[in-house]
Amino acid sequence: MSSVSSIPTADDVLDPQVDVLPVEEVATALGVPVSRIYQSVRDGHLIAMRRAGQLCMPAVLIDGSEPVKGLSGTLTLLRDAGYTPTEMLRWLFAPDESLPGTPIDALRSNRGREVKRRAQALGF
């Protein structure tokens, strides 16, 4: 079993007002073991960060009992474009006048196609 320190994490580049959930709470919300959350982060399906030394995720990445629709594919596109986890997190929460709002807001409101188009364009 790999150690928790081998999990790729983003720097905490978000506003302190952004609610975060410890990975244990994310696992409970998704109904999976914590080890599955760690593996999802390693596989690039979820993104984690450390806040106050604790491994956590922005709460808006979770929609009820599942990750936000389109998040995994968007993270894959960003990684393929050469983005680091920190850059991915920053991009997801950065205002984009063309959406309008932030990419994570657009994903949460079922506008994933628009978000993925923008993420794909970053690779060119």
Rank of each mutant, 00 (worst) to 15 (best):
33 P>D: 13
78 L>F: 02
87 E>D: 15
91 W>S: 12
17 Q>S: 15
58 P>Y: 02
52 A>D: 12
70 G>L: 03
95 P>I: 10
63 D>L: 06
52 A>Q: 13
120 Q>E: 15
33 P>Y: 06
95 P>T: 13
33 P>I: 08
110 N>F: 03
58 P>H: 05
33 P>W: 02
22 P>N: 14
34 V>Q: 07
24 E>G: 12
95 P>L: 06
46 L>Y: 04
55 L>W: 02
120 Q>C: 12
25 E>S: 12
21 L>P: 03
7 I>E: 04
16 P>F: 00
8 P>N: 09
3 S>V: 03
115 V>E: 05
1 M>W: 01
111 R>C: 08
109 S>P: 01
61 L>C: 14
41 V>S: 08
3 S>E: 11
28 T>P: 02
52 A>H: 05
122 L>N: 08
94 A>T: 15
100 P>N: 11
40 S>V: 04
109 S>T: 15
59 A>G: 05
82 G>F: 02
85 P>K: 05
36 R>V: 14
41 V>T: 12
111 R>L: 04
115 V>I: 13
98 S>L: 09
30 L>T: 10
21 L>R: 14
36 R>L: 12
115 V>F: 01
122 L>F: 01
1 M>E: 08
54 Q>E: 13
15 D>S: 14
95 P>E: 10
6 S>E: 10
88 M>I: 05
117 R>M: 08
91 W>N: 14
61 L>E: 13
97 E>F: 02
2 S>V: 05
70 G>N: 08
36 R>G: 09
85 P>W: 00
123 G>Q: 11
72 S>H: 08
47 I>E: 07
108 R>E: 06
46 L>D: 11
45 H>M: 10
124 F>G: 15
102 T>Q: 03
16 P>M: 03
95 P>V: 12
40 S>F: 02
97 E>H: 07
3 S>P: 00
62 I>G: 07
49 M>R: 10
43 D>P: 03
121 A>S: 13
23 V>I: 15
101 G>D: 09
56 C>W: 00
82 G>I: 05
24 E>F: 03
71 L>M: 10
11 D>F: 00
85 P>R: 06
